[in-house]
Structures are given as structure tokens and as C-alpha cells.
Amino acid sequence: MTDTGKKMLEIRWHGRGGQGAVTASKVLAESAMSLGKQIQAFPEYGSERQGAPVKAFTRIADQRIRQHNQVTEPDVVIVLDPTLLDAVDVTEGLMENGTLIINTESSPAEIRQQMGLKGRTLYTVDATGISLRNLGKAIPNTPMIGALVGAMKLLDPKLVAEDFRVKFQGKFKDEIIEGNVQSILDASKEVRAE
């Protein structure tokens, strides 16, 4: 298999400006790189505004990633804000066998019905609740990283959490780092399959 084949995982992040979708795309890529993978992470290039829908992308592969085209057919779509489900077609380009992970209090069955979703593998996780519990703030991006690696068995959540701790040591207060670490671990366990 070449570095351009489907041994590469392509992830699209949907969020609203300020929720940390772009940061999440990069933090996940950095963790994957620390764990020996090849990576790319990039935002949708445009003018960002607080609260406006934003997209970001992560590519993870075993071989070097050389292409610089857009991600049009993602394997995984992650939605940081449930209100986007009514505003954006989050399933655009997502194949029948693709995976959708949504930050919501609702169950996968409820969301499937609400979206009228056909096919795809659906997970939900209350990332906002997890963030409020661990950080006292609604910052759903790190829990969504935990939900992704937990649901997809992509990387070991403990190693991802530890990598986060090492990377951000000295950049944030200890309690912020520990809150994020706990959020990653909690979400990796609390993510709900159908």
C-alpha cells in the first residue's frame, strides 16, 4: 500500500469558532506523531469568527503523507457542538462505512432518529458535561479527542492523556492540565456506541 492509499485515516472536525476544533485537530495529530504515526493537521482556511461554524482536519497514517489536497471524503467526522447538526451537513462526503462522533447528551439512537441518519457508525458522548465536571468550563475539544481514540481504538487513551500532560506542562496551570487529562480519559470510557 502506498502512502496515498486508504491506510490513512482522515478526520474532519466540526465546531464553532472558539470551541477549539482547530486546536483539537493539532493536539490529536501531535499525540499520534508522538506515538509513531505520520500526521497532518490543518484548518479550513478562511476568516474565523467567534461562534461561526468552523472545520479542521487531521490525517494520520503509517507512511509519510505527501498530498496537500483537501479532505473531501473523511473516515471520521467529529462534531463539537450539537447545534451544528441543524446548521451544517456534517455527513458531507462521509462514506457508508464512515464514523460520526457527536458531542451531545442524547443517545446514538436519539441522534440517528433526529438526523434521519442512514448507515455509518454513530457514537455520542457528553463532552460538554465531561468538560464542565473536570474543568468547570464548557471546552469540549479534549474530551472529543478522548472519545475518538476510545471509540475507534485508534491510540491508547492513557498514552494520549500522558502526551497531553507532557506537551502542555508549563504552558497551562496544573489544574487545567489535569482537568483536560481527566476529560480525555473519562470521554474514552463514556463514549456511547449504538
Binding site: 506523531m33 505520520q38 490543518f42 503523507i65 496537500h68
Partner: peptide
Amino acid sequence: LDGFIISHGVES
């Protein structure tokens, strides 16, 4: 280097 595609994309 290409604006945004390279300047703002994260790579190894």
C-alpha cells in the same frame, strides 16, 4: 512556501 496550505498546516 504556499500560503496556508504549508504555512498553517501542521506536519511532522
